[in-house]
Design a protein around this nucleic acid. Sequence first.
DNA 1: CTTAGGG
DNA 2: CCCTAAG
Length: 701
Amino acid sequence: MVVKKRQYYGFNGFHMPPVPRAPRSARGRGLNKTKVEDSQICAFELLASLAGKLLQESESSASSNASEANDQPVIGGGGGVKFEQDDDRPLRAECLDHGSCGESAFFTRFSSPNNDQKCLLNEFPHAESNLFLERSSMIMNSNSSKNGGADLKSVICKSIPGKVEGSSDSRVSCDGYVDNGLSRQKRCDRLDTRGLIGDPCSSNDPMEKCMKFPVLINSVNNVELPSCRDPVTSASIPRHRNGIKLGIRDDAENFTRCNKPLTKSKAFRPPQRIGDRRIRKLLTSKHWKVGPKLKDCEFSKPAFLEGGVKSHYLKRKLCYSRERNQRNTFYKRRKFTDHSVVVTSDGGFSSESVCNSPDKNMTGDKNGASIMFHANGVSSSVIGHQASFHSKDSQVKFSIKSFRVPELLIEVPETATVGSLKRTVVEAVSAILGGGLRVGVLLHGKKVRDDNRTLLQTGITSNENLDALGFSLEPNPLQVSPPSCTEDPPALLPCDTSQLILRSPTSPIVDSGISDALPDLPPLTNLDTNIESNRESASSHADIVTDNTLSDSRALVAVPPVNTEELAMVPLNQKSKRSELVQRRTRRPFSVSEVEALVHAVEELGTGRWRDVNLRSFEDADHRTYVDLKDKWKTLVHTARIAPQQRRGEPVPQELLDRVLAAHAYWSQHQAKQHSKNQTAILKITDAHAVRNGVEDIQSI
DNA sequence: CTTAGGG
DNA sequence: CCCTAAG
């Protein structure tokens, strides 16, 4: 609402004073009354956008923190980082910059429905003008908040130094807005975290962002926070003028993601995760209780300015968690200085897996600890936009808002300069763009595969509601026919492979056997999930379209990419799917090598020391928690006991399974007998299984 | 936070 | 994988 208002005034030549005003609730109401025409962005939309922005910020905070350590409000500086976060929508691109500039950009765009193009040009005087040319038609529709993929273009532009400094005007107004709106919240947060955050001006603290949401929620009860990364959800935002859905969970999720990555070291991972989860829970369920009761002002101002977090349960919780997380992070950093530092803005639930192997490789490199920016799930969210004007000559006009980078994995030495990082990013992007990118066409969520059919035949006509049209980036040009992974399991391998190749244009991703590094191309075992995701997204999409049609057929609609296969869209889809559940981590089947490591560790440590096992053998596998290992062991034992025919997933060598049984048996007994040296038992067991390796390992213990 | 176990 | 009880 605030945004809306601000924007509204701004367009009429007014500038909201950067002075605190009445509670948002009040302002908000007034605004509603003042509601302008359709072309005006709905308050909710803006709110949602804002929320999205915040979310995105939070997501990127981890990396941002790292990159902004030098206090550089560099717009392009975060280039590398940005890509990571950009796994979703357009907001993202703008939001990536945590500096004020970034904000201004963001607000400018979304606050000037009638003037978007102009603003854009202002913001990106150079390249943008060209790049965004296409947007004009779409923008004219006033649907400025329609989602789009993180704008690759803009990102690129931003990575070019000095490019975006942009219009100071917009910034001013933005700042003003911030002050009126969320600033208080921010300040409060800072108070609490002072000292923890290096740059007080950069609101890149994950917690901070996360904590803002409740505020938003307060003011708008019937609004749901959409996940930033969910194209589907976000797409719907503009259209649902009445009931916007905000997927809180995503916020939490985002938060989680941004929160954990600072270091890869395993040791501190668990804490973070748990903390996140706690927060997540709070956000998901409890906030509903807490939020509505509190006034906006209550929530954000008094308690925190006074340094007292007490007044607000939720807030305190969050702060506490954050602090703890921070501590953990720092501790970890110190502790693992000679390990490579990995900054991943986990684009999704999967980034970890992708990083997994590379990290291992990097670990050896002491001095040149590397900073890895992992753009995971930076998918190409694409938006097909209809031309709202139907030309008589049957010309179909398309306006593609933006494409996002499918994925980027960039690895540069810590000693590398920011400039070199930028260049690297540019190269990576270029490689992707120039390399093998394909564009897919989606109609009503379905991929149009027949390239030979005419638009007319396909149903893409100037008369048709092009809202249902979408484009997708397909990273793998090699794939002649879009992989229907769901149909032919064997086909999965090719998919995976090709993707992997494509995904690491700059630096090779070393896959240490984690086959599902790519969430979008899950191994056999993930098929179901994938299918579900697709189904989900499809249905969501349908809803959206319907709504849109009803409410505003003119509005440009971002058609959420439905083909999970080509794009790293899974996170998005999953989000929509689980928008109401607590986020679930992506499934990452254990590779044989991992199993081997696990077995070996257990053989030595036993089955009751999962933390040690984790530390010992999965130090570099951030995503493997001791619980994971324990669970895996559990399943391994089970697997070893069932008939080979009943086993699913990547087959585990019988030899390993034998060792599993042997070790399991041994440790079962060992534990039972309390260290009673029963060599006999061991021998017996091992004999029974005739596992030589197992014997050796066990005996060597 | 870890473990252990059920879901 | 998630969730939870329990230590």
